[in-house]
Design a protein around this nucleic acid. Structure first.
Length: 212
DNA sequence: AACATCAGCAACCGCGTGCAA
DNA sequence: TTTGCACGCGGTTGCTGATGT
């Protein structure tokens, strides 16, 4: 899809937290706003979104600026044309992680959590459901939700922990955990390239399927 | 051609977490 | 210890274009 020019709701305020009476711009971003934002970030960096929002001269809230940057303006963003390989990876990761879009996006270079979430809701959700329906015909009651349960953890930290704690390899829903989850999803350790990670994941996920 | 419905997606919202004062 | 700010995440909303009737 081309850069959006549609005018969404342009209402005052942004609901909730801000008590400011200043009328904020909302809705679709214009090319001019995009230029202002990326120009400012180029010079000052993508930090302190509230400051960025005010100093850049954009009549937007910091949240809106952050979202626009992360999902649209950031360099190396891939948009659209999700390949079969990526789709397959999303399906597998979702089966493993559930709706942890940012984690899934973290393993798809150039893809954003928002894009993946949208893609899931509009394309893959149906696929996943129909897949489950089919497998239900063969064996009843497949497990719902992520095979690996996660506690919410900050980015770039050991994000995953098994529910039972420790190095136990049996997960709460009966899935076997065939690999070191903490190491596997430790994004701070980027020694291995993403390509390597993907092939490693596909390999291990295949094993997991065989074990089912 | 006109209208209704659906699908895709950008953007908004509320909440949780981390951190500094 | 408490409080407030900044940030990130996931769910939801609603606009637009496509498709169907």
């Amino acid at each position: 899809m081309v850069a959006p020019t549609r005018s969404k709701k342009s209402i005052n305020g942004h609901g909730g937290s801000s008590s400011s009476k200043r009328v904020m711009n909302r809705g679709a971003w214009t090319a001019e706003e995009d230029m202002k934002l990326s120009g400012y970030i180029e010079i000052h960096g993508a930090k302190r979104w509230k400051t960025i929002a005010t100093k850049s001269g954009l009549n937007r809230c910091g949240k809106s600026c952050r979202l626009r940057w992360l999902n649209y303006l950031r360099p190396n963003i891939k948009r659209g044309n999700i390949s079969d390989e990526e789709e397959d990876l999303i399906l597998r990761l979702h089966r493993l992680l559930g709706n942890r879009w940012s984690l899934i996006a973290g393993r798809l270079p150039g893809r954003t959590d928002n894009e993946i979430k949208n893609y899931w809701n509009s394309h893959l959700n149906k696929k996943a459901i129909s897949g489950r329906e089919k497998s239900r015909e063969v064996e009843p009651a497949p497990p719902q939700g992520p095979a690996i349960s996660l506690h919410k953890a900050p980015e770039n930290s050991p994000a995953l922990e098994e529910e039972e704690g420790g190095s136990g390899d049996k997960l709460e829903d009966g899935y076997l955990d065939p690999f070191d989850v903490e190491e596997f999803f430790n994004f701070s350790n980027e020694a291995t390239s993403c390509q390597e990670w993907v092939s490693k994941f596909l390999e291990l996920d295949g094993d997991l399927l065989m074990a089912d």
